[in-house]
Computed example of a mutant assay.
Amino acid sequence: MSRIKKRGLDYFPMNTDFIHDRLVRRILKREGDAALAVLLQTLCSIYSGEGYYVLADRLFYDDLADSLYQQEASDVERIIRLAVEYGLFDAALFEKHHVLTSVDIQRQFLFITKRRNSSTIDACYNLLPAEEPVTELPSAALSGQEKNAAKDVDENDVPEGINAAGNGNAVTFQSENSENAPQSTQSIAQQSIAQQTKGNFLLDSSPGTGGTEGADGASAEEVYLRKIESMRPPKDGLKRNLDGLLLNLRQLRIPVQQQYAIVLKSNFGVIGHPMWKGFGVLRDSHGKIRQPGNYLLSLCR
């Protein structure tokens, strides 16, 4: 029996500066700290339901209030209307259809579900330009700031030790000794990957560009972007988070050549690799590490 395809998302990203956003702070100042719970519950309802919108009718306000300890349905409605007034949700759709959504929420939904066979937005609720590419980095759901990585997966596909509900980077690391085990499954996979990619590096390289120019005249960046997009992890049973890895690399603005090398050297983002700890060090450094790509590569040696 085939599985029922889920419309909404299992997880959605949230920036650590969400609570410091100017509009969110204005709402909290007027409605108190409890308004934060209403906003978070609303986002959960949007992403877990249809994925990019929710119908804000009387039943919605009642259900939301039932999950809170201090807020009544009237309080929930007042806070949400205030959020619409401040522009956190699209005012036109709310007034016309009683729907809560926004450009950033829809962009986030399409980005996370871009690998699904069918990922569309109802024309009645669509706020995105028709020519906008889906492959852009996701924007913030409310604050307009960049979000951390999130991976759209089924419940049975979530690797153990990954907490994608927060920023997509929190992982439980395997023992460091596992990397040094002789002829382990991981080392065998890395040898296989190296053999498969060695020929590609030689074919794509040239004395003038050092592997930065394609046969069709494409630029170095375009060549490596194509390589990255065509990457598929080997089916060797190891747990990986390739999508989360790529999102983190892009958010750090690491050059595509280094992104490609990091993916290969980390065995396609295998869980437990020292590189994942490196992302935490980079975040804690607050920009003091000037060359994050070189730093991550140093952890892959």
Score class of each variant (00 low, 15 high):
Ile188Gln: 12
Glu213Pro: 00
Ser175Val: 02
Gln186Gly: 10
Ser175His: 15
Gly161Ile: 14
Gly168Val: 01
Asp152Arg: 12
Gly144Trp: 01
Glu146Asp: 06
Thr172Lys: 15
Asn167Trp: 00
Pro138Ile: 03
Asn180Lys: 15
Ala149Cys: 04
Ile188Val: 09
Gly217Lys: 03
Ser192Trp: 05
Asp152Gln: 13
Ser206Asn: 15
Lys151Ile: 07
Lys147Gln: 12
Gly211Val: 01
Asn148Arg: 13
Ser205Val: 06
Gln195Phe: 01
Gln145Ile: 02
Phe173Glu: 15
Leu137Asp: 10
Gly217Asn: 03
Glu160Gly: 05
Ala141Thr: 01
Gln186Val: 06
Asn167Tyr: 01
Ala170Ser: 14
Glu155Trp: 06
Asn156Glu: 13
Ala215Gly: 06
Thr209Leu: 08
Asn200His: 07
Ala141Val: 00
Thr209Met: 08
Thr209Gln: 12
Gln183Glu: 07
Asp216Lys: 04
Gly214Tyr: 02
Pro138Ala: 14
Lys147Ile: 11
Thr135Cys: 07
Ile193Gln: 07
Ala165Asp: 08
Gly217Leu: 01
Ala150Met: 09
Ser206Lys: 10
Pro133Ser: 10
Gln191Val: 08
Thr197Gln: 10
Ile188Arg: 14
Val134Ala: 13
Gly210Pro: 00
Gly144Val: 06
Thr135His: 13
Gln195Leu: 05
Ala215Asp: 08
Gln183Tyr: 08
Ser192Met: 01
Glu146Phe: 10
Pro138Asn: 08
Leu137Gly: 07
Gln196Met: 06
Val153Phe: 06
Lys147Phe: 05
Ala149Trp: 00
Ala194Cys: 05
Ala181Leu: 12
Ser205His: 08
Asp157Trp: 00
Ala150Thr: 14
Thr212Cys: 11
Ala181Ser: 14
Leu203His: 11
Gln191Phe: 04
Glu213Thr: 05
Ser184Arg: 12
Ala170Met: 13
Ser143Phe: 00
Asp157Ile: 05
Thr212Asn: 13
Pro133Cys: 05
Gly166Gln: 13
Glu160Thr: 09
Glu213Gln: 07
Asn200Met: 12
Thr172Met: 14
Ala165Tyr: 08
Asp152Tyr: 04
Ala189His: 09
Gln183Leu: 11
Asn163Met: 04
